[in-house]
């Protein structure tokens, strides 16, 4: 089976659960203890699809207030982006549109997957209400704590990376 290697950027504001998503996806673990990521942390994970094996080098970038503050060099050569925001923090929603616009401008033709994390902090009714006020189209709603949809995010991106390369 064909095997490709891609650089994937995991970005978003601080404390939205980026590192927790990686921990859940790569190590199947979760810690409630918050440790801020300094600079960048790199992990690898291989996703096996029907037609291809995708070796993802995941760059977990330390959270910044907005994407314009992330060192540009970290974005270079990215094959895909996972943008994460905290669904339980509506005050941060206003930044999402600008951030995604910035990313798509910087990384042309690179697939961006938008993820709303921490759905475990909201009940079903509140979650539906919050979904209505999110200003962008969200690809996945996840819970790194409970593992909800985490695998799907990366599998979805892996499939997009394969499609892009064909």
């Amino acid at each position: 089976m064909k095997s490709i290697t891609k650089k994937v950027i995991l970005t978003g504001s601080f404390s939205v659960g980026k590192t927790s998503l990686i921990s859940r996806f790569v190590y199947q673990s979760f810690s409630a203890e918050y440790k801020t990521t300094l600079g960048v942390k790199i992990d690898r994970k291989t996703v096996e699809l029907d037609n291809c094996i995708v070796n993802m080098m995941i760059w977990d970038i330390g959270g910044e207030q907005n994407q314009a503050r992330v060192p540009e060099t970290y974005f270079l050569g990215s094959g895909g982006v996972i943008y994460v925001f905290d669904i339980s923090r509506p005050s941060g929603f206003s930044q999402i549109t600008d951030d995604i616009a910035y990313l798509t401008a910087k990384l042309k033709d690179v697939p961006v997957v938008v993820v709303g994390n921490k759905i475990d902090l909201l009940d079903v009714v509140t979650l539906e209400e919050v979904k209505q006020i999110i200003p962008v189209s969200v690809d996945f709603y996840t819970s790194a704590k409970e593992g909800t949809n985490v695998e799907n995010v990366f599998t979805h991106l892996a499939q997009k990376l394969v499609n892009e390369s064909q």
Binding site: K7, G39, I42, M57, G79
Partner: peptide
């Protein structure tokens, strides 16, 4: 990208892909 294009080692390193990425991150930093 920091992705590894090729690798040679006298004694096999644990994860050359990660080392390549980290070296790139250091350069970027």
């Amino acid at each position: 990208s920091g992705l590894l294009l090729g690798y040679y080692s006298r004694s096999n390193t644990t994860d050359p892909d990660l080392i390549a990425a980290m070296l790139t991150a250091i350069q970027n930093f």
